[in-house]
């Protein structure tokens, strides 16, 4: 029974541009939470934190990823619809990003 003060759960993902193939998370979303992507409901295959991205549909190696309707890099590993899109499967077409271990692993 939901108390009347509690707002209905807000959609966790936002499509920024109709051309985009990723959705942006606007509140922390839990593993298994039912999300609706292009009208189709599915359980989220992983938890996703605020600000992160998931695939709008299946993405293959080499696919350009579009956000704001513009390319933000290319897929280096495939991911299914709803999968987390981040440093493990998406890379820049310009300059590689670096993590906190960069200074111990070397600058390149």
């Amino acid at each position: 029974m939901v108390s009347p003060q509690v707002e209905p759960a807000q959609e966790a993902f936002l499509l920024l541009d109709p051309a985009d193939n990723v959705l942006v998370c606007i509140r922390d979303a839990a593993l298994g939470e039912i999300v609706t992507i292009d009208g189709v409901a599915m359980p989220l295959p992983q938890a996703v934190p605020l600000g992160h991205k998931i695939a709008r549909h299946d993405l293959a190696v080499g696919d350009k990823v579009l956000r704001y309707g513009a390319p933000i890099g290319s897929m280096k590993a495939a991911t299914p619809r709803g999968g987390h899109v981040h440093s493990h499967n998406l890379a820049s077409d310009y300059i590689p990003a670096h993590g906190r271990d960069a200074s111990t692993k070397g600058s390149k």
């Binding site: 605020l50 600000g51 991205k53 513009a70 933000i72 890099g73 981040h86 990003a97 906190r100």
Partner: peptide, 17 residues
């Protein structure tokens, strides 16, 4: 290095562009 800090990635940004 690009102008991209580790905290940017923690916050969900993946690439320089």
């Amino acid at each position: 290095y690009g102008s991209f800090a580790p905290g940017n990635a923690d916050g969900g940004l993946t690439t320089q562009e």
